[in-house]
Simulated scan of single mutants.
Amino acid sequence: MVVRFKSPKPRKREDSENYFECIDEKNERQRLGSLEDKASVELSIVVPAYNEEERLPVLLNDVLAYVQRRREKEKGFSFELIVMDDGSRDKTSEVALEFARKHNMCELKVVRHTINRGKGGAVTQGVLSAMGRRILFCDADGATRFSDIDALLGKTTQTSIAIGSRNNQALGETVVERSHIRAFLQWGFHTYVTILGVRGVRDTQCGFKLFGRQAARQIFPNMHVERFIFDIEILLLARYQGIPVTEVPVNWHEVAGSKMSIVRDSIQMALDLLAVRLNYLLGNWKINAEPRQHK
């Protein structure tokens, strides 16, 4: 019953979702690249954003500061920043493009979804279009200090994954600030995840994950989940295919304005996770280990 009614069914891209907007001299929509193409930049940064006009600038400023410092040390450093506007009803896209104009950031691309997919769907579609040798997705709220990416970069190869963790403070001088209720629910969810067989990862849900390009090619064309539980499917696919995953402590603080309902979405995530686990155990979902083109 759970498998039948709760199995995610990702929708196909609309034609308009194959294009991005930026501020280069063409000043027109341009076609997105593909994960199956050869990398053309060092780093892709994918940011899922739904009604984030107020919180997004914090992250954009953080990214800009990081890039400027990086280029002082490494003149040829190249990147792209893909803001996946997931059907926002506010001015998320306009805020991103205005930031790009203000700071002459031609590397910032905005993709507009016609209908909200969910965070997982926005991340997946962004990664499938990424052109970086390494690909990071991070939350739009700027809860994680962006410069912590350097620690993740030091732990990844083209065939591995490094994930930010809010539960590894003992491993480094990181700072994690969260409410007691959020901490309790995270503990309960972690216990549930462990029972369902996703072991060895302390923090599955931190929105700060870095992929080598080959690892991303093995995972994201196989993704089904478009809502909050997508992080678990990523880790399951990595486990099934023997892709190394390293947890790295990051600095994180809770930011007001979350789109997640703690109680309702926690129940939804629990049901979705059970459906995902059963689909793989029963063989309903097959894993294509060979990289493939996306539509």
Rank of each mutant, 00 (worst) to 15 (best):
A130L: 08
I163Y: 02
G118I: 02
E94H: 00
A140F: 02
S165I: 10
R182E: 07
G87A: 10
V95C: 02
F184D: 04
H103Q: 02
I115E: 14
D90K: 00
L152Y: 07
M131T: 12
S179E: 07
G164M: 10
D86P: 04
A96S: 05
S129T: 08
R182L: 14
A96N: 05
R134S: 05
I149F: 02
S93L: 03
V111S: 08
A162H: 04
T124H: 12
S129A: 15
S165K: 01
E173I: 12
D85G: 02
T174H: 12
S147I: 06
A151N: 06
C106N: 15
A130Q: 01
V193Y: 10
G76E: 14
V198C: 12
R134E: 07
L185W: 08
L196Q: 08
A143P: 09
E94F: 00
F137R: 05
G126I: 12
A140L: 07
Q186P: 03
L81R: 00
R178Q: 14
V175W: 07
Q169P: 10
T194F: 15
K109R: 15
R101C: 08
E72Y: 01
R133F: 04
F189W: 01
D90L: 05
E107Y: 02
A162T: 07
T174R: 15
K73I: 07
H103F: 07
R133G: 06
V127M: 11
F137S: 06
G164I: 07
D90Q: 02
A140Y: 04
T194L: 14
Q169Y: 04
S147M: 04
K73G: 11
A140R: 03
L185M: 11
H113P: 10
S88P: 05
L97G: 00
L128S: 07
Q158D: 15
G118W: 09
H113C: 14
S88V: 10
K155F: 09
L108Q: 03
E173K: 13
A170E: 15
D85L: 02
S78F: 07
S179F: 09
R182M: 06
K102F: 03
K119P: 14
V111I: 13
G172L: 06
M84A: 05
I115Q: 07
I149E: 06
G172D: 15
G154M: 06
G164L: 09
D150P: 01
S129Q: 09
D86T: 04
G164Q: 09
N116L: 15
F79E: 03
R199S: 15
D148M: 11
T159I: 06
T124D: 12
R199F: 14
E107D: 09
K119W: 11
C138R: 04
F146W: 05
F79A: 08
K91C: 09
E72F: 01
T156Q: 07
V110S: 11
T159E: 15
I149W: 03
L108M: 07
M131V: 12
L97P: 00
N167C: 13
T191D: 11
T194D: 14
C138M: 04
V83L: 09
G142E: 06
R101H: 05
L153N: 03
A170S: 14
A122I: 06
S147P: 00
Q169K: 13
L97Q: 00
V176G: 03
R89I: 10
G154P: 01
F146R: 02
M84D: 11
W187E: 09
S129F: 04
A96H: 03
M105T: 10
E177R: 15
T124E: 13
V111D: 10
R166N: 09
L81M: 11
V83S: 06
S165A: 04
I161G: 11
L153R: 05
